[in-house]
């Protein structure tokens, strides 16, 4: 009985997912019929690029989860803070761009280290819920403190990247999105290699598996924690530059962090490949919904479609497409 039920519920899961995919395809199909297919392709390409830029934000989250087993609800705020620092250097101090980015880099390194040392390290051994609450508190603190210190006026980071789209065959590609997506893939590939192929990467995964046992293997757990938080901070700087350039720098920027959740739930909380695929799926769903559904329903569906997908995913495959299944045998 049990196995049959399991089988059925697994099937049900796939039916739901297939229905959703059919919905997306239908979106595209209808779009092709009533608009033109070039529009559909363009939306899809734009969606994929945007999605990869979501991956760039989500990877910081995954890094922290993979190595410290903590869920960082403040990843979007990291992005915001990094962008605010860079924008502040540009606007207030009139520093050149490269120097501003360097200051932002230094700031995020110190920021990650401080956070690990004074907030997360004392919490080692505490309940995971306590750590989650701490990061939620941190998120709200940063959202308040960022504008307080650096001013609330919206600003932008102008990267020396042309705004006019690159025309490639039938496609119009936004340069900043291309660059963002390329940086994203580069970093994700780098992290994937690190975790799978290097001894330090293996140690980091061991730390995530069990702090105590890793310590007993001679692994300096606290140092790995610090490395994880600093890396998450630095990756947030990249996200902040790309997104800050695109949508401007103010507290709203932190909201891109919310996209992290559908991305990582779809791809799997601890999977680097999952971050890429999850990002692409979320970007696609968003772009197609924005292009083909929103005009008829008066807009707004674009923003919650990825979350619908996320909820379906949670029902059928809580560990995501590529995430590890929790092994329950002892």
């Amino acid at each position: 009985m049990q196995p049959i039920l399991k089988f059925l519920s697994a099937k049900f899961a796939w039916i739901l997912l297939a229905a959703f995919i059919a919905f997306i395809v239908a979106e595209g199909g209808v779009g092709v019929l009533i608009k033109d297919w070039r529009f559909a392709v363009e939306l899809a390409v734009d969606g994929v690029l945007t999605g990869l830029m979501y991956s760039l934000i989500a990877v910081g989250f995954v890094l922290i989860y993979k190595s410290t087993d903590a869920i960082n609800f403040a990843q979007g705020e990291f992005v915001m803070i990094a962008a605010i620092v860079v924008a502040g250097c540009l606007d207030w101090f009139g520093l050149p761009l490269w120097l501003s980015i360097l200051v932002g880099f230094g700031f995020m390194v110190v920021f990650g280290m401080t956070l690990e040392r004074f907030v997360l390290r004392p919490m080692i051994g505490m309940n995971i819920v306590a750590i989650i609450m701490a990061t939620i508190g941190l998120a709200f603190f940063l959202r308040g403190a960022g504008p307080l210190i650096f001013g609330a006026a919206p600003s932008t980071i102008n990267l020396p990247i042309p705004d006019s789209p690159i025309v490639w065959g039938l496609l119009y590609l936004t340069p900043i999105k291309l660059l963002g997506a390329a940086v994203s893939i580069l970093f994700l590939a780098g992290f994937g290699w690190f975790f799978l192929k290097t001894r330090k990467g293996v140690a980091m995964r061991a730390v995530a598996d069990s702090h105590q046992v890793s310590m007993a293997m001679g692994i300096n757990v606290e140092r790995y924690f610090a490395v994880a938080w600093v890396t998450a901070g630095v990756v947030a700087l990249l996200g902040g530059l790309a997104w800050g350039n695109m949508i401007g720098v103010d507290t709203q920027l932190a909201l891109v962090g919310l996209k992290v959740f559908p991305v990582v739930i779809l791809g799997g909380l601890d999977s680097i490949i999952g971050v890429i695929v999850g990002g692409i799926v979320v970007g696609l769903v968003e772009a197609l919904t924005a292009g083909f559904v929103d005009p008829y329903v008066g807009g707004g569906m674009k923003d919650f479609a990825p979350y619908v997908l996320m909820v379906i995913m949670l029902m059928i495959r809580p560990y995501g497409i590529f995430g590890r299944r929790l092994i329950e045998r002892i």
């Binding site: 001894r199 140690a203 598996d209 069990s210 046992v213």
Partner: peptide, 17 residues
Amino acid sequence: RVFANLTCAENLIAGAH
């Protein structure tokens, strides 16, 4: 208390930290 999500070889690699 083996590292359940790592392979056996990776467990040994972690042990040789």
